[in-house]
Design a protein around this nucleic acid. Structure first.
Lengths: 187, 187
DNA sequence: TCTGGAATATGATTTCAATCATATGCTGCC
DNA sequence: GGCAGCATATGATTGAAATCATATTCCAGA
C-alpha cells in the first residue's frame, strides 16, 4: 500500500519498477514524468553545481516519496541515482495535478505536507543544539528515538559514538532510564 | 500582500494583529483557530516535554507562515510566544479547509508545500556536512548566501565566525571570490 | 556630523565531538 | 552449532569548531 496521500490516487496513476544500484531514474533538465515512492532500496538526489560540484540534495529512504515538486515543474532540477537495489512506484504527474480537483485528495496532500514541514522544522531546531547531550535529550523528548540508536544518531546529525556517550551521561544524570540494552526512556 | 498560497484566500479569512513581546498567540491543547503569517517580528513555537523540558519547535521569521498543520488538527500541539513585537495575520482554519475545494488554491498550496519540503531536505543534507569549509561551499552552491553572512551562518547551523573563516579559506583556495566586503560568489 | 549598533573580519584559546580502536552481545542463517 | 554481521558500548586521541576577544567598516538616525 502506498503512503498517504498517494493511496487516494487511481491505480492507473502508478507504475511499479524494480531498480538496481547505479540506475538513473531521471536527470537534471529532463522532462518531468512524476514523483516517486520508494518501497525498498536507497536513492540519492544530486545536483551538479555551476562549477561541477556534486551536491547531494536528498537521500530517499524506504516508504518515503521524493521528487514531489517535479509535479509542479517542467523539468527535473536534479539527478536521481539508485544507490541500493529495491523497488519503487512512479506516480504520474498529470494524475496528481488532476487529483487536486478532488478536495479529499487535496486536503490529504495538504495535511501530509504540513506535517512534514513541521517535522522538518523541529528536527532542524534540534540539530541546531550544539551540545551533544542537550541535542540527544531534545531528540528523545521529541520522540525521535524509536528505532535503533544508530538511526537516531543519524537523524540528530551526530556520530553514534557521541550519541551513546550522551545517552550514558543522561542516564547517569538521572534524566533518562536505560531499562535494557539499547532501549532508553525519559526518566 | 500575503505570501503564496494564502493570497488566494478571500480577505474575510484574514485578520491582522499587532503583537508585543511576551504575547502568547496560542497554547498547547487550545482549540485550533488557524495558521499565522508573520509580517514582522519574531515568534517562537515551543513544546513542553513530559518532564517539563521546554523545547523550541520552530522560530518563525518575517514573511513566513507557521502553525500550518493546525488547520488539520483539533488542538494546537505547542505554544506560540512572541519574542519581538511586530504584526501578523491570522488565517482562518475553516477558510483554508474550504479553499481546498478550489483546485487553484489546492495546487498552489501543494506546489508551495512541496517546494518547502524540498528546501528543508536540502538544508538538512547540507547541515549534515561536518567540515565547516565543505558545508559553507555547499551552502553557496545551493544559493543560500543571499542575505548577510550572519543569516547564512544561522541557516548552516554554524557560528558566524566559523563561517567567515571558511569563506576566507575558500577564497584563498580560489573556489570562491570576494569581490567586495561582505559579498562572496562562486569562483 | 557625530554616534550607536550591526555586520564584517580575524586572532587566541578551549572545549567537545569526531575519529580510531576495540570488545561484547545479539540475531539470522548456512 | 558456529559464524558473520550488526547494534551496542566505551576508551584514547585528535582535530576542528565554539567561544571569547577585539578591531574595523558601514549605515541609520539623532
Amino acid at each position: 500500500m502506498l503512503p498517504e496521500p498517494y493511496d487516494l490516487l487511481p491505480t492507473t496513476a502508478r507504475q511499479s519498477h524494480t531498480i538496481a544500484a547505479g540506475d538513473v531514474l531521471f536527470q537534471q533538465g529532463a522532462r518531468t514524468r512524476g514523483l516517486y515512492v520508494l518501497i525498498t532500496g536507497r536513492v540519492h538526489l544530486e545536483r551538479v553545481g555551476p562549477n561541477g560540484e556534486r551536491l547531494i540534495i536528498h537521500r530517499a529512504t524506504s516508504g518515503t516519496s521524493f521528487a514531489e515538486a517535479s509535479v509542479f515543474s517542467e523539468r527535473y532540477h536534479c539527478d536521481a541515482i539508485v544507490m541500493d537495489a529495491g523497488e519503487l512506484v512512479r506516480i504520474d504527474k498529470s494524475a496528481v495535478l488532476a487529483a487536486f480537483a478532488n478536495p479529499d485528495f487535496a486536503r490529504a496532500y495538504g495535511r501530509h505536507a504540513a506535517q512534514q514541514v513541521q517535522a522538518h522544522r523541529q528536527i532542524m531546531e534540534i540539530v541546531g543544539i550544539r551540545r551533544a547531550e542537550d541535542r540527544v535529550m531534545a531528540g528523545i523528548v521529541a520522540g525521535l528515538l524509536d528505532g535503533t540508536v544508530i538511526d537516531f544518531a543519524a537523524r540528530l546529525q551526530l556520530t553514534h559514538e557521541a550519541t551513546y556517550r550522551a545517552l550514558r551521561a543522561l542516564v547517569e544524570a538521572g534524566r533518562v532510564t536505560n531499562p535494557s540494552r539499547g532501549t532508553y526512556r525519559l526518566a
